[in-house]
Write a protein that binds this DNA or RNA. Structure first.
Length: 886
RNA sequence: GCGCGGUUAGCUCAGUGGUAGAGCACUACAUUGACACUGUAGGGGUCACAGGUUCAAACCCUGUAUCGCGCACCA
């Protein structure tokens, strides 16, 4: 057996083991396998992305699920890949070209530019997947997919053609969210509302029929006044008498009608609304209702486009925000600005470019979502389960208020819209060019229009992968993409039925669910609770953390603080704890290795055992099968709970108690229980390593091999689900542990230095019957825990008793003389007496309440009675001791 | 405005009706043959607030405050 290093050194282990796993093909999924399938598709990270803590958490959770499933004997497919991230990638490559060659995308042909993006992807696109390997992800890299793979691209276009044929995809001129920085439309889901400080400008519009009279309008956007085509007031409201009259538009002066429309709220602003159909969604609707013209005065990059010789001509060509300022100055100069009021409102920002979006009328492709009622029913009927469950409300709300999806983007990098035009009128939707003279639509598709096929399109192979592994078992993702991805993947499964139709509706559904369980991770925030972002620089690089604490430390630390459905406040201390835990585990095993060969098939049941072995086996049973077992926790996707159960078991039950007790046994070569203790040690260690493997794959694999449990990977070992409970009870072990705690407290309270070894005296309580006195072995263990020279068993209290602890075993005394300062001792006793009296009072109050006695369960009442007796006894004894001290 | 989630020790958080918990941080002691990435002990809490249900409430109900998130509105 190789000698283990004094501390676990992850750097020596991780890369070597990962390479070995890869070489042995342990992560490869075999669709021909007879084992039950378990599958997860990885939410594809952005190909331009770099690993951040969110990825670490998300992928660690997936890895836990997959490694556990493998150990349960399932055939596991964890399918990795990356997303072409149309706009983000295009922007990044454009930036690079601008910096290195001082060129823009328009200096290239579309084909040339796309070629450059591919070059970039070949060079840098593998960064994030190599980083995922560093954290130990057990995905099947031989099946890695990219949303721009040839097959995948074709599938996306096929889907477009199909939906077009079904009339669900259509082209239309509509108000869309326009990003003036990226020069493309984006979907509603990619618009992030943000609070903006600005002004509400109160502007006077002169009435045409009654010069000198004005109508006051409040607006946040005076730069769009030139596009006003009407003023609207509330029907039947206080301005109703003006309906049908006209007002002078104050910039680019012209007459515009005054109309009445229900959209106007009298309580807001001045109760008069300027109607600018080209630049506001509500106004556009009003315009349609009243057959008003649409005057567009903004260029695609949001500069004023209102040329010609008019009174606001100087605004032409200005950026929208400069124009806003200048417009207000112009109005002010003309005496038409009543006031500028400070104002905060919500403005939609483009998620990608982080600039305010412009509502803009443009020709775009839209998808009318199919299968909405079915998608709702999926979740409501429990075919798909969300963890935590409360996200179902969000899902339902979105589906119930769903709008058509704007799927076209004015970008080059992505899946091109498979529609062809000729002579400006003929239009054909098909993948290949219909022939000479036909031109393809220049738009590309929203990246999410490709990712919504991810769950099954990635499994399109000849070898039966999809039949074996689709529907997938679980999806692990963030709640921020419930709409963008989760809901749409479910809809895609429902509509395209990738696994075909079966004889019944129920079976068709079951075969075509994208996934059965969805686990939403929390968002990782910094110590102050802020979102992590590049701008703030508050996001630690996971690779730095791995270098410092090891991948297992990072994984375990993160999972342990990530309760289901809660955001996580990240603190590096927590990763340190993860590392420390790995080291603890390492050292337990190291200690065991020092005691001789390990029996990989140890059966503690065959040997005589100490009560301490039994106690540990009992605790293991609870960890495996109890109400708060690892299994219970993982079945409910409570990863942090499972990690904490293991943490507690390993650190406290195993290391602090069992190992310490075992030392007494190992100290004597001819101990009758030595073999049993070793077997218990090996047996529990084997279980612990296996249980921890999904959480901390490297250290467990390394120990598994080094200790000689098997020459095979620990991943080939069985996931433990049960372990018998020792028949002979272990209450004595608990009594000793508790007594040891109390005795140590006593030592602390009288300020004995922890290295000072002293004798103790024990007067066993009557409950420790004469039939079960403390054995020599038990005595030795207790003495070791207490750092006692001896524990002398007495029939009655010593004539001159020292400080005393009340323990389950009886009264435990320190020697009376020499050790303790009487003042310190008096303080200690007084304090303990006060606490005892308080507890006693509380208990007596309960027992004195007839109502309570009558209605509480008898078992509880018994507990209280027993408590009262022992507290009374303790109180009496404390008083006596105090009296003696004088 | 609607919905969701939170408010428990200095910090991060467990805790689904029966004497308030863990880790970290802090303090003291300890370098004893697994581990200083350690061990032992200690101090530290009106469980946000107010009502209600109950024999009994951190926990269940109602309301309030406050923080965060989402949706809608956004002249």
């Amino acid at each position: 057996m190789p000698e283990l290093a004094k501390a676990y050194e992850p750097q020596q282990v991780e890369d070597r083991l990962y390479a070995k796993w890869q070489d042995e093909g342990l992560f490869k999924a075999n669709p021909k396998s007879g084992r039950p399938a378990y599958s997860i598709v990885m939410p594809p990270p952005n190909v331009t992305g770099k690993l951040h803590l969110g990825h670490v958490l998300n992928n660690t959770v997936q890895d836990i699920l997959c490694r556990k499933a493998r150990m349960e004997g399932k055939e596991v497919l964890w399918l990795p890949g990356t997303d072409h991230a149309g706009l983000a990638t295009q922007t990044m490559v454009e930036k690079q070209i601008r910096q290195t060659e001082k060129k823009t995308r328009h200096d290239f042909t579309r084909e040339e530019f796309i070629e450059r993006v591919w070059q970039w992807k070949e060079e840098f696109g593998g960064i994030i997947t190599s980083q995922l390997r560093k954290i130990g992800c057990s995905c099947d890299w031989s099946r890695e997919r990219f949303t721009m793979d040839t097959d995948y691209e074709r599938a996306v276009q096929e889907v477009f053609v199909k939906l077009h044929r079904e009339g669900l995809i259509y082209r239309g001129k509509r108000m869309v969210n326009w990003c003036p920085a990226s020069l493309t439309a984006i979907s509603d889901e990619e618009v992030i509302p943000q609070k903006q400080k600005g002004f509400l400008y109160h502007v006077r519009y002169e009435l045409v029929e009654t010069p000198g009279q004005f109508l006051e309008v409040a607006t946040t956007r005076p730069e769009t006044i030139m596009a006003d085509v009407a003023l609207a007031v509330k029907p039947g409201g206080k301005w109703a008498h003006l309906v049908g009259k006209k007002a002078w538009r104050p910039l680019h002066r012209e007459q515009i009608p005054i109309i009445a429309d229900e959209a106007v709220e009298e309580g807001f602003g001045t109760g008069v609304l300027k109607v600018t159909p080209a630049h506001d969604k509500v106004d556009y609707e009003i315009g349609k209702r009243h057959h008003l013209p649409v005057l567009d005065i903004l260029t695609p990059n949001a500069k004023i486009n209102d040329p010609g010789d008019h009174d606001a001509a100087e605004l032409h060509g200005l950026d929208r925000f400069d124009a806003r300022k200048r417009a207000s100055e112009l109005l002010s100069e003309r005496g038409l600005l009543v006031k500028e009021e400070s104002y905060e409102n919500n403005v939609g920002f483009s998620e990608r470019a982080n600039v305010p979006i412009e509502p803009r009328l443009s020709e775009q492709w839209f998808l009318k979502y199919p299968n909405i009622p079915e998608a709702l029913a999926l979740v409501q009927k429990g075919h798909v389960k969300f963890y935590p469950e409360h996200w179902t409300k969000v899902y339902e709300h979105w589906l119930e208020n769903i709008q058509d999806w704007c799927i076209s983007r004015q970008i080059w990098w992505g899946h091109r819209v498979p529609v062809w035009y000729k002579d400006g009128e003929k239009e054909i939707c098909q993948i290949e060019s219909p022939g000479p003279g036909w031109e393809q639509d220049p738009d590309s598709l929203d990246t999410w229009f490709s990712s919504w096929l991810w769950a099954y399109e990635t499994m399109r192979t000849e070898d039966g992968t999809r039949q074996k592994f689709y529907p997938t078992s679980a999806l692990v993702t963030g709640p921020d993409i419930i709409f963008l991805w989760v809901a749409r993947m479910l809809i895609a499964g429902l509509h395209f039925k990738p696994n075909g139709t079966k004889e019944t509706e129920e079976k068709t559904l079951a075969a075509n669910l994208a996934f059965k369980d969805v686990y939403y991770t929390g968002l990782i925030r910094d110590k102050q609770g802020r979102k992590m972002s590049k701008q703030l620089g508050n996001s630690p690089d996971p690779l730095d953390l791995i270098a410092q604490y090891g991948a297992d430390g990072l994984r375990f630390g993160l999972v342990r603080i990530a309760p289901q459905g809660q955001d996580i406040r990240f603190d590096e201390k927590q990763i340190e704890e993860g590392r420390n835990f790995c080291n603890k585990l390492w050292n337990i095993c190291r200690f065991r290795a020092m005691q001789g060969e390990i029996d990989s098939n140890a059966e503690p049941w065959k040997h005589p055992r100490t009560i301490f072995s039994n106690e540990l086996l009992d605790r293991l049973h609870i960890v495996l099968q109890g109400e708060s077992s690892v299994k219970q926790a993982l079945d409910r996707y409570k990863f942090s709970e499972a990690a904490n159960v293991l943490y507690d078991f390993v650190w406290n039950d195993f290391a602090s108690r069992f190992v310490e007790a075992a030392k007494s046994d190992f100290a004597q070569a001819d101990s009758p229980t030595r073999a049993g203790t070793l077997a218990t040690f090996d047996y529990v260690m084997s279980h612990v390593l296996r249980l921890l493997h999904p959480f901390a794959p490297f250290v467990t694999e390394e120990l598994w091999g080094n200790l000689g449990f098997s020459t095979l990977s620990i991943q080939a070992a069985l996931w433990p689900t049960q372990s018998p409970r020792p028949k002979d009870g272990s209450s004595r072990a608990q009594e000793i542990y508790t007594s040891a705690d109390l005795g140590r407290q006593l030592r602390g309270e009288v300020k004995l230095p922890s290295n000072q070894r002293v004798p103790f005296y024990l007067v066993p309580s009557s409950l420790i019957t004469k039939d079960h006195p403390l054995t020599d072995e038990q005595n030795a263990v207790l003495a070791a825990f207490l750092n006692a020279t001896t524990i002398e068993i007495l029939d009655q209290a010593p004539a001159n008793p020292g400080p005393k602890a009340f323990t389950p075993l009886g009264d435990l005394y320190l020697p009376a003389t020499g050790l303790v300062d009487p003042t310190v001792e008096r303080d200690r006793l007084t304090k303990e007496l006060a606490k005892t009296e308080k507890d006693l009072e509380q208990t007596r109050r309960k027992l004195g309440d007839a109502n309570m006695l009558a209605k509480a369960p008898p078992a509880k009442v018994e507990e209280w009675r027993a408590l009262e007796i022992s507290l009374t006894e303790k109180e009496k004894s404390l008083r006596a001791a105090l009296e003696k001290l004088g």
